[in-house]
Amino acid sequence: MLKPKVITQVLQQANTAGVHAALLLNPDGSLVSFAGGTEKDAKVLAAVASNVWFGYERYGKPPAANSVEGGEGKEGLRNLILDCEQGKLSITRTSRMLLCLVADERVEWGLLKAKTRTLKEYLEGPLNLVASY
């Protein structure tokens, strides 16, 4: 079973040094859990993050240079970082869900990427047990 309270506590640990929200969402954009910010904001963020992620996954992949023209050989999307005027968003896949971190514009890329990767690796094992459908 997923314990929502524990997931929120894990996500909350990322909310330091300029990172003000962490979200876990289903591939369809529905929110599983979040820490930081209001629920209304989290729902909007989840919907947009999911849409952008799947847009890039379907149409934003560069085909491998040695692939045949029109053939397969596309790569998997690992991480997506969006830089806006007043904030930054980092999105990655963990198990079958998406993990999204929201930070203000002063947060460094490397820190945001490292936090996202660490949280992804921590959540991947437990989520694989419950989200194997």
Binding site: V52, L77, L80, I81, C84, E85, E105, W109
Partner: peptide, 10 residues
């Protein structure tokens, strides 16, 4: 968060 300036996909 204002206008989008950049997107980095890995």
């Amino acid at each position: 968060f204002g206008r989008n300036k950049m997107i980095m996909s890995t």
